[in-house]
């Protein structure tokens, strides 16, 4: 048995990559910076985690490097909170 099999099938994963964003759980974060260090585009993911903000920058490729490397499971792919998307549109 594999716990992961409950939620993620390959198709779901692709869907997630296309439609979701990297979302942090600030409670888990210890600000080590592994996420920012491994972002190929230099996005300061750690700052997002500190502020509890999803990475909705259009630059983010949702490559998953930060999600995979975080040693504490802070980051996940999820729908970005609506207010953050509207905020961005208003800019």
């Amino acid at each position: 048995m594999n716990f992961r099999s409950i939620f993620s099938k390959t198709a779901q994963k692709h869907e997630r990559l296309a439609s979701q964003a990297v979302v942090p759980d600030p409670q888990r974060c210890v600000q080590c910076g592994i996420c920012s260090y491994n972002c190929p585009l230099g996005i300061d993911v750690r700052l997002h985690a500190l502020q509890g903000l999803a990475v909705v920058e259009s630059k983010c490729l949702t490559c998953g490097e930060c999600v995979k490397r975080c040693p504490r499971g802070v980051l996940r792919f999820d729908a970005a909170p609506l207010e953050q998307i509207t905020l961005k549109a208003a800019k």
Partner: peptide, 14 residues
């Protein structure tokens, strides 16, 4: 980040 020192030690992080 004090917890981050573990990853400096292991070489995962400069």
């Amino acid at each position: 980040s004090r917890p981050g020192l573990a990853y400096v030690l292991s070489g995962e992080l400069p």
